[in-house]
């Protein structure tokens, strides 16, 4: 696909990715998000982040299967929407639910496993988003692949966070969990390569300590 076609596809993807945000703003503005929309907003944006993550993970297998190299060029765009929705999600939690009670936020992150997991996931997403800048990517060399492979555990963490956050309605989190497992399974050679590379990287870091002894 030529340059112009790619631009059109990207514009379309932006529109598609932003549509839920517009719908959310309209729903809240028109009082269609319930009497107290706080939980609705937190839920909606959290699911937005998860959907964007699933979409990101779908891109490689689809591009491979159909030989669509132009699709690969959209992967970063879609991936950044994971960051976008995750940032809305955590901002809504802090601003609307906790009402900026920073002490409570800190204790919840430390004490509540499902919030801890969500927070770790957010840190990973943030790291991936920042290092998606082309200049940073160049400077990171091989480490970039290593860091960005953490999208695999990230997907598991996000689903786990979702599963633990619900009171009883586990059907949807389980559905998402199965989707993530399938997506990881579909690229298992790559996942296992990444795991081995991580193991090697950790071993290398540990080695100098041993040699000093």
């Amino acid at each position: 696909m030529g340059g112009r076609g790619l631009v059109a596809v990207k514009v379309l993807m932006h529109l598609l990715a932003l549509t839920p945000t517009v719908l959310l703003v309209v729903a809240v503005g028109l009082d269609k998000a319930g009497g107290d929309p706080v939980q609705y907003i937190i839920h909606f944006t959290g699911k937005g982040a998860l959907n964007a993550l699933i979409a990101t993970l779908l891109i490689t297998p689809i591009a491979r299967r159909f030989g669509w190299s132009w699709l690969m060029q959209c992967r970063r765009l879609v991936g950044l929407y994971v960051m976008f929705y995750a940032a809305l999600h955590i901002s809504a939690f802090i601003a609307l639910d906790l009402v900026f009670d920073v002490k409570l936020l800190a204790s919840e992150i430390l004490k509540r496993p499902y919030i801890s997991i969500g927070f770790i996931a957010f840190v990973i997403v943030t790291a991936l988003a920042i290092t998606s800048l082309k200049s940073i990517r160049k400077n990171m060399g091989k480490n970039w692949q290593l860091l960005h492979g953490s999208v695999y555990p990230l997907a598991l963490l996000v689903v786990w966070h979702y599963y633990w956050s619900v009171r009883s309605d586990v059907v949807e989190p389980i559905f998402y969990g199965v989707a993530v497992l399938l997506l990881l399974w579909a690229r298992w050679p790559k996942v296992s390569q990444w795991l081995q590379a991580m193991r090697r990287a950790c071993a290398k870091k540990a080695a100098p300590v041993n040699s000093v002894r």
């Binding site: 009497g35 107290d36 706080v38 639910d97 009402v99 009670d101 409570l104 204790s107 919840e108 004490k111 509540r112 496993p113 499902y114 919030i115 633990w164 956050s165």
Partner: peptide, 11 residues
Amino acid sequence: PRWSQATERRI
């Protein structure tokens, strides 16, 4: 077990 009950958000 999953959240604090020390405070509440008054609607």
